[in-house]
Write a protein that binds this DNA or RNA. Sequence first.
DNA 1: CAGGATCCGTTTCGATACTG
DNA 2: CAGTATCGAAACGGATCCTG
Lengths: 142, 142
Amino acid sequence: MNTYKSHVEKSECPIAHALDVIGDRWTLIIIREMMFMGKHEFGEFLEAPEKISTNILADRLKKLSSLGIIDFIEHPQNKTKKLYYLTDIGVGLIDVMVEVILWVDKYLSTAPSPIIENIKNHTPEFIEKTKKNIQSWNEKNL
Amino acid sequence: MNTYKSHVEKSECPIAHALDVIGDRWTLIIIREMMFMGKHEFGEFLEAPEKISTNILADRLKKLSSLGIIDFIEHPQNKTKKLYYLTDIGVGLIDVMVEVILWVDKYLSTAPSPIIENIKNHTPEFIEKTKKNIQSWNEKNL
DNA sequence: CAGGATCCGTTTCGATACTG
DNA sequence: CAGTATCGAAACGGATCCTG
């Protein structure tokens, strides 16, 4: 046994600051739904296969807002609704999310799917396309 | 309001399969300590600044083992100790971890640090160096 | 009727004391 | 010193209620 000298010095690894976002199942699910599924409404998030419950969803939406990762506006046609959307900080998480997808595919590989093939072979294009989708929604609605 | 047609079809986004690993604060901390700090022992993980408690640590080490992300051997000098190490699947998470680091730096920016500058400007080299460190430990000890 | 707050039974977490 | 047992605290799921 022989511990190598780490090339990263103590407390210089800032992953800690992301633990509240990345290290939480529900925030990740919400971000996934917004980022890749184009969802914006409370009721849409409830439809995610993980069956998030309403109190948890409300809590995490608040948390993500206070962290500056998402924000919301009033629904233009329905005063009782809000439209949640990713801020630039939130959109910035796409690189993390894509790496997660690639990792799952590479090592935990579930059934092969054409969309994963596409993401794998055209990663930058996929990221750009996703960002464009998000931004075009923002331009129309904000 | 105008929901764009998502380019990712329902249930084709496999992030779900990573939620147990990525969506858990403590597993992420353990992986960080192994990956970047070169830690291998139970007692070393306890020294992380997040102050993981012993039962949670034991639980997560078990969980990570059962997921195939880490494995362990008996300590060569001390029968009561185990040496935990990242498997190939675990090492494969480095791209995710690095993206998290870059995201934190870009958007949540804490104090600027030289090591982050280094990671930012030489990302592939940093990844390679980290992998090499891990692999050289593995070669010596497994 | 939709968002989301509240209440409550159950599960999980985590700090600490403890064991080998 | 690695790992377990215990037990109070917190999170969760689900139903229900409230408000606009």
